[in-house]
Write a protein that binds this DNA or RNA. Structure first.
Lengths: 196, 196
DNA sequence: GTCTATATAGAGATAGAC
DNA sequence: GTCTATCTCTATATAGAC
């Protein structure tokens, strides 16, 4: 198919830059990582990188948006309901244990991005609103089936489940012997009553 | 008593610097905050600040260590046992809702400091080890009294309670309508069985 | 104890050659 | 699409006057 090797290599370079940016932002955070360092990681100079992404903030947003389209949570979770959605979060935690870079990225940025002036602030506000909304819905569906522990508020349970996921990620980054998936699973089953 | 106004003012300046440093590190993180900005906040130039704290990293450590001696958790928690210790964590969460600066500081730094090269890395490793140890002990004491929900592992419950505290702090920083204390209280009561 | 001035280094971003 | 060279700004830290 008719030879567009230059633009193909262009797309490859973009992906290469995004991979390097994930690592750099994960290790040092957004503020401390430098465009020069990211460019060096893929054998480029920093003007070459800025040809593909006009600013450092644009690079960060591209990193975050690519991750959201590829990984969980966010992709395909709308189709899941009730216990299936909660089980999906346990799987996500298990999968994350094999991807330290992604966990570092989000744990580091979540803290930084609480500042309203941070370029990823709006992204994280939207991300949490979406995630919390979906998990709350799952708990409500569980409640309709009489499978939610009595007296538990679905919105509160959702907040705490998401908090457990985030908090265990930090603990896991400080001590890799922490079992994130087991913790999330325990948190899920703490509020589910098995009928019978 | 007996006129050491210069050294008294010296101590006052130190405290002034630490207060400004808390705010700056909280708002921007350690990497993004600058010594100049912190000095300006208390009407000093940056060499004046560096007279009191030799390096930026030393300033960060002083901030963290002062907070540990003043605030919770860490101070006086060894004397608390079982349910009292867990109740103390609920009170801490309630108190934190009135101190956004402290919450921002620890939420921002916890992410940054997962990197082993971060100046506060060892501090956070030690802090989590200590905190998790105390909470786990509280859950074990609860279990001995038959008040821990059967089948719940004290170490796992401790990890998840600390994770809820941390995770709710991030959510609260993004949306101040989140009730941190209520969430922590709900997490505590989720694993306590009231005998009778 | 605080200042001005400076050393040294690195940041993000742009101009223009190839 | 990538480079070299450079602009401008800011950073941490130090020297030395007061």
């Amino acid at each position: 198919m008719g030879g567009h090797e230059l633009s193909a290599r262009g797309a490859g370079t973009r992906a290469l830059i995004l991979d390097a940016a994930v690592d750099a932002f994960a290790e040092s955070g957004y503020a401390a990582a430098s465009v020069r360092e990211i460019a060096a990681r893929c054998g480029l100079t920093h003007p070459a990188l800025l040809y593909h992404f006009p600013t450092k903030a644009a690079l960060l947003m591209a990193v975050l948006e690519r991750r959201d389209s590829v990984g969980a949570p966010g992709g395909g979770m709308d189709a899941l309901h009730g216990e299936d959605l909660l089980a999906h979060l346990v799987e996500t935690a298990a999968r994350n244990a094999a991807a330290p870079g992604i966990v570092e990225l989000f744990a580091t940025l979540a803290g930084e991005a609480t500042a309203p002036s941070h370029p990823a602030h709006d992204f994280f506000v939207a991300r949490y609103a979406s995630l919390l909304g979906m998990v709350e819905r799952a708990y409500r569906e569980l409640a309709e089936d009489g499978r939610l522990t009595p007296g538990v508020d679905p919105a509160d349970a959702a907040r705490r489940l998401v908090a457990v996921m985030d908090g265990l990620q930090v603990q896991w980054l400080l001590d890799r012997s922490v079992d994130m998936a087991a913790g999330v699973a325990a948190q899920v089953s703490a509020h589910i009553v098995t009928p019978g």
